[in-house]
Simulated assay, not measured.
Amino acid sequence: MKVEALFYEKFKDRVHCFLCPHNCVIEEGGFGKCNVRIHERGKLFTINYGEITSGALEPIEKKPLHYFKPHSYIFSVGSFGCNFTCDFCQNYTISQFRAKSEFISKKDLMETAVKLKNNIGIAFTYNEPAIWYEYVYDCARLLKEKKPHLKVVLVTNGYINEEPLDKLLHYIDAMNIDLKSFNDRYYKNLCGGSLKPVLKTIEKAAGVCHVEITTLLVSEKNDDLKEVESISKFLSSIDNNIPLHLSRYFPRYKFKNPPTDINFMKEAEAVGRKYLNRVVLGNIY
């Protein structure tokens, strides 16, 4: 469904989208870098409002959130599109392409979440929830107004500007944020983004809701103990109880590098534990 987007302004014969740090200036008929926000006749529209590509009731640990309502289940939904172009994307079929979807209204989504047995809320995941912003915001607000006991979770790359983040955080209970690297060149060359905005998101979110961090350790790219140490030091400077998930990479999408070495994963865990109280290895079994 196409609806008018939030967080944009007219800029001569173009529009300036300031939802995320790309700050795209879009010509008539063109899309932003996320490929879901289009300029038509002086207005910016989002084309993925309410468009669901995936949905499942899943363990909260799969998000991964190991320290937020452990052993519970949460209704997880996603759409299509992303503001990153990671060469190793695990969900590239929906993040990098317009996948088949089904429209579900915010009211129907809430009612589904309420009816599901043993469900604690809604998790916006699979693709990037930031560029699904209008729907995520509407659903989160409705859920908190009507069923405040249910939880709202974001699984995100953290690449969002501060104004939209502040507006959304009022309704968020927990976030898992991908901190893909502590190297801006890595972000630029492999992800199509930058590091600093993600660090700002982590700092701001950690003061408002429960936050856990995931770093995918990609063979021959960021499988470096100094990198893990830098990430761990940064997180500990905010709160040494922030959980860090160090996730093992497997070949995917455009990347054919071998899986991350298991021994390195264990060494990385030991480095992380020098600074953080909660370090979890993922994708190792």
Rank of each mutant, 00 (worst) to 15 (best):
L190Q: 08
Y186K: 04
K180Y: 07
D173P: 06
T201N: 04
S194C: 11
D166T: 14
K167D: 13
L195F: 00
C139G: 01
T156V: 06
K188R: 15
H149F: 12
N189C: 05
K167M: 12
E145A: 14
K188A: 14
V153W: 06
Y186R: 05
N157R: 07
K151M: 09
E163D: 10
K196R: 06
K167A: 14
K151A: 12
E145K: 15
G158F: 03
P197I: 03
V155P: 01
L154A: 01
C139R: 00
H170V: 07
N189P: 01
K196V: 10
M175E: 15
V198K: 05
Y159K: 08
A140H: 07
L199F: 06
T156A: 08
K180I: 06
H149P: 00
Y137R: 10
H149L: 13
K146W: 04
K180D: 04
Y187V: 04
V198G: 03
K188T: 14
I160S: 01
K188M: 10
N189V: 06
I160D: 03
C139H: 00
I160E: 01
G192Q: 05
K146S: 14
D184L: 12
P148M: 09
K167Y: 04
N176Y: 08
P148K: 12
C191N: 06
F182V: 12
L142H: 02
L199V: 11
K147E: 14
Y159W: 02
S194A: 10
L199I: 14
R141C: 11
E162P: 00
C191R: 04
L142V: 05
D184P: 12
L199M: 11
N157C: 08
V136E: 08
K144R: 12
K200N: 14
N183E: 15
E163R: 13
V136G: 13
K180M: 02
K151R: 15
E162Y: 00
S194Q: 11
S194V: 07
C139P: 01
I160A: 01
G158N: 02
K188L: 13
N189D: 15
E145F: 04
G193T: 02
K147S: 12
D166H: 11
V136T: 13
V198N: 02
P197C: 07
E162N: 02
N161F: 02
K151Q: 14
K167F: 08
H149I: 08
I177E: 11
R185T: 11
D166E: 15
F182R: 10
D184M: 09
F182D: 08
M175D: 08
Y159N: 03
D166M: 14
L165H: 04
D173T: 14
N157G: 09
T201P: 03
D184W: 10
